[in-house]
């Protein structure tokens, strides 16, 4: 009975963490990117950092960040809906 009891919290955390699924470990990648080169180690967050903050290309980088945020939001909303379809509580009810 332990696992079924934990299910609501597990689903809650899963859904919330889905929102940051595109943040694939920014710090580790930033630290080790120099060893493999940008063409091998570039992810969305490092792209935004190097092109936006360092090189000053604010517009494109902000757009990249926005798209990332929107995808995260879409995943949260979708996963919440999915949880409701399976009869679970999910994060919230509307």
């Amino acid at each position: 009975m332990t696992l079924p009891g934990l299910l609501p919290v597990t689903i809650l955390l899963l859904i919330l963490n889905l929102g940051t699924i595109l943040s694939v470990g920014f710090e580790q990648i930033l630290l080790q990117r120099d060893n493999v080169g940008p063409e091998a180690g570039e992810v969305l967050d490092t792209y935004v950092y190097f092109h936006g903050i360092i090189d000053g290309a604010w517009g494109p980088s902000a757009a990249v960040g926005l798209v990332k945020g929107l995808i995260g939001t879409g995943l949260i909303l979708g996963a919440n809906k999915l949880a409701h379809l399976f009869g679970q509580e999910g994060v919230y009810r509307t």
Binding site: G19, D45, G52, A62, G65, K68, L77
Partner: peptide, 16 residues
Amino acid sequence: ALFTMLFNAGIIPNFL
């Protein structure tokens, strides 16, 4: 407050 869990505008807006 909950909206900040749902949506994150990204690094650049925060920096600005």
